[in-house]
Amino acid sequence: MSAITAPLRRSRPTAEPSQSPQLRVVEEPVVRHTLAYAVVMVLVLAAAVFGAVSLNALAAGASVEARTLEAHVAVAERDYARLVAEVAALEDPARVRAAAMELGMVAPGPVRHLTLERNLPSDGAVPSSRTPDATTDPLKPLLSLER
């Protein structure tokens, strides 16, 4: 067992009469309001928690809304694809022919062509908007490079 040595005693400094006494003005010690500090901290923490929860709730709400919109987009895309297929089926020449014959139409007779003695006044005056153009159909792709 080791021996414990006693702390060394320091000799107290002797006062020198030639020096002035060490006196100074001290301020009133600051009183720390522990309760107020705790309340502030609780409020800050509560605000932080509330903010985090609020942000989380907002994010969740936005996420749900995004999913709802995605579902709507998916439904719209599905309907669009189905409508495209239905339009194509309705435009099928075989179906159109069968429907026409069912309505009592008959195949045309021999094709003849006319030669006009002179040009009609309206020749070349047909506005382009009235000419048939496959690319004006919104269901069809733009097949012209000029557009």
Partner: peptide, 16 residues
Amino acid sequence: GRIYDRDGDVLATSIQ
């Protein structure tokens, strides 16, 4: 992708 004829009429497509 779809398959179109030369005028953009659908010959093959996909539905859900």
